[in-house]
Design a binder for these strands. Structure first.
Lengths: 97, 97
DNA sequence: CATATAGTTATACAACTTTCAAACTATTAC
DNA sequence: GTAATAGTTTGAAAGTTGTATAACTATATG
C-alpha cells in the first residue's frame, strides 16, 4: 500500500520539523536509536547534559510530533523511535543521522 | 563516494529543519519543485498569498539553509531547489512532499 | 534624466521557544 | 504510614520567529 501525502500533512510536517530543529533533540534521537538497552530520562539528561525537567520537555515535543513513543515500567520511562513516522515523512533520514 | 555525517552536522541540520518548519516555506518548496518554468518572487507571493518582502524573507531563510539556490536575470530572481542538500540530509523527502 | 518595477532591508510588535528553579505527582522501598 | 526516587508541570526570563509597513537599492524603459 502506498501512502498518499499532500498539503494536508503540512501542519504535521511543520510540527515534526520544529521538533527536529534542536541540537539536543537530535542528540536524544541519536542516543535512543543507538542504544539497545532501555534507558531512563535521567540517563538521557546525564549524557546530554540537561536538567531532568528539560529532558521531560524535549521528550514531550518529540512525542507530540509522533517521533517517539514512550513506555513506562515502574518509575522509569523509556523512549523508542517511531520508525513509522520517520519512514513516512523522512525516509532515509535516520540512516543519515 | 559515501558521505560521512555526524554530530558535527547537527548545527546544519537544525538550520535546515528550522527552515522547513513553516507551512509557507513548504509551499514555496513544493511550488518551486513542481514548476518547470522560471518564476519570480512576485509570482510566489501571489500564489502563496504573501507580501513580496515576506517572500524575500522566506527565500533568504531557505537559501541560508542551503535548500535553494537563486539566480538573477534582470530585475527577476529565480529560485531552484538544492537537490544535493536534500539528497544528503533528507533522502526521499522531496518525493514524499 | 524620470518613472516603473522587482526585490531587499529596517523597525516594531506579538507570539512562540528554551532554560531554570521550584513545586508537584507517582511509584517504590522500608 | 514516611522517605526516596523518577518524572511532570508551572512560571519567569531571555531569546527567536513571522508579519506588516515603510524606506531602500537595483534594473529596465522611455
Amino acid at each position: 500500500m502506498t501512502i498518499k501525502l499532500s498539503r494536508d500533512d503540512d501542519e504535521k510536517r511543520v510540527k515534526m520539523f520544529k521538533a527536529l530543529a534542536e541540537v539536543k533533540r537530535l542528540e536524544i534521537i541519536r542516543y535512543i536509536r543507538q542504544t539497545d538497552r532501555e534507558m531512563t530520562c535521567g540517563d538521557l539528561g546525564e549524557i546530554i547534559g540537561m536538567d531532568k525537567s528539560n529532558v521531560s520537555y524535549h521528550l514531550k515535543i518529540l512525542y507530540e510530533a509522533d517521533l517517539v513513543k514512550v513506555s513506562r515500567s515502574g518509575q522509569n520511562k523509556f523512549a523508542q523511535l517511531r520508525e513509522d513516522t520517520f519512514q513516512t515523512f523522512l525516509p532515509g533520514f535516520l540512516d543519515s543521522l
